[in-house]
Nucleic acid binder design. Structure first.
Lengths: 268, 268
DNA sequence: GAGGCTAGTGTCAGTCGCTGACAAGTGACA
DNA sequence: TGTCACTTGTCAGCGACTGACACTAGCCTC
């Protein structure tokens, strides 16, 4: 479970699924690909479940046996990505502060997301699908609701990690909600911008996390708040090209006191 | 418009709508009330549009002529509340920092929301409906999507107020997203708690806004971060019973430097 | 006040997402 | 080989929603 990265020579847990199982998986994969292909070309609303079923040459009923609804097909890959992030967060060393851990987990997962996605569909299809989600009201709504569920999971995870009761102390849920809000703004800007690449969203993520402090700072007209408030950039990452996926414990910013010196006094 | 409260001897802008108009409004109101009544008793999913139409003794088609969908009926009051908040935000004096203005606008609108709601439906019905929204996945999703739209509006409002380009400077959207995240957590906890009153959510709102700093502070295990980071409570409100709606410019916390002295150095 | 215009409504038919029930085909396994 | 179980197709039906058509009742003009 924890040793992600080198999981190819799995010794035991792959006893060849059997023909029926493989057949089932094949139709499911075909339905998923057809769904994403149609969603990203015709649009989500313009694609009927009959269209998808017809493209795979199965009955409509079969589609609903593989996916609870049209929506779930649209989010199948997104779910993989979010699970990937949660796993990256679980892998963070315990000495990191919650916000440090969140920050590094996202950036890590952007660096390593390609492999996780490519095993299901081409990454390019996922990127296009993200845009469809952002620009389709029904999907955006579903996406946000799912995010709330993920945030609850993360809040519990962080609370457990810090030894807090998530129902008694509001800080875990608040911190995760703040973080989630920033991620949402990031994803939105990414999906509407020109550079629709993984490198772009990684850079955008880091930049936005760095801007939480200034955004919450008292005054935007004068820049007295910028750099004066360290709420949210506990550890700026000066090297976007680094590969944190190699060894999470050995990156150059593991020490909470290292990395930045521009926050006099109030650094926490 | 602005003189809510004593609006009976309206001089000009009430030329009596005419019988047809009045009849139309009456059926719309009846549909709305029946909707909320059924949603809060039977549940949203368990209530069909036919149920609502039958309760008002009109055809199903008529319902869809008054509301674009079942969903919109559920959010009719919520829309009023959000518009109320945006208006309260517009009324904030320009010398307040963005976060000050946001904080005071919410607290103000919680103080004055009763009148705004009561003109449409009983407040108690609105409170019950809020719980229905929070606990019905489809409505929660729609609620979150609407919140995103509201947040975009608020971000543009704050950006204009501060003289920033909302597309060039990420701070407005980030600040509003953070604020929105906190409001979401607040609403969620309120709807699941015991004290389901307006006073309760007002107190919860203030408490959670005060906790943004601590939540983003470096370390939750030791309390070194608590009170050391002033990101988000630029002006703690020590008097929950005050009525800020009376005169927004005369409240005891108008001066950014007043109100708290526990944030040495980094207060912004 | 009669007549025409139009907005609000009812009725009907149809689309789309989704579900339960039943029957048929086909791997799995003894 | 035969039985069992799982996958699929077919069919009927519900609920949200929409377009088309006809009817009624305010409204406005002459």
């Amino acid at each position: 479970m924890e040793t992600a990265g080198t999981a190819e020579a799995a010794p035991q847990p792959a006893p060849r699924p059997g023909l029926r199982e493989r057949k089932k998986r094949r139709t499911r994969d075909a339905l998923l690909r057809a769904s994403l292909e149609l969603f990203t070309t015709k649009g989500y609303e313009q694609t009927t479940v009959d269209d998808i079923a017809e493209a795979v040459d199965v009955s409509q009923r079969t589609f609903f046996r593989h996916f609870p609804g049209k929506e779930e097909a649209a989010f199948a890959v997104q779910d993989t990505v979010e699970a990937h992030f949660v796993q990256a967060l679980r892998a963070r060393p315990r000495h990191e502060t919650p916000l440090e851990a969140l920050r590094r987990a996202v950036l890590d997962s952007w660096d390593t997301i390609s492999d996780a996605v490519e095993s299901v569909v081409p990454v390019e299809l996922y990127l296009r699908m993200f845009w469809v989600i952002e620009s389709t009201p029904a999907l955006l709504a579903a996406y946000l609701r799912r995010s709330v569920e993920t945030e609850e999971e993360i809040a519990r995870l962080l609370a457990a990690r810090e030894g807090l009761d998530v129902d008694a102390d509001p800080r875990p849920r608040l911190a995760v909600a703040v973080f989630g809000g920033v991620m949402r703004v990031t994803g939105r800007q990414w999906s509407t911008g020109e550079d629709f690449s993984l490198a772009a969203i990684r850079a955008l993520t880091a930049a936005h996390l760095d801007q939480i402090g200034p955004a919450l700072a008292g005054n935007w007209r004068t820049d007295d708040g910028v750099d004066a408030n360290p709420c949210a950039d506990p550890c700026a990452d000066p090297d976007p090209d680094a590969d944190p996926g190699a060894d999470p414990d050995a990156d150059p910013c593991a020490d909470p006191d290292a990395g930045e010196g521009a926050t006099p006094g109030a650094d926490v």
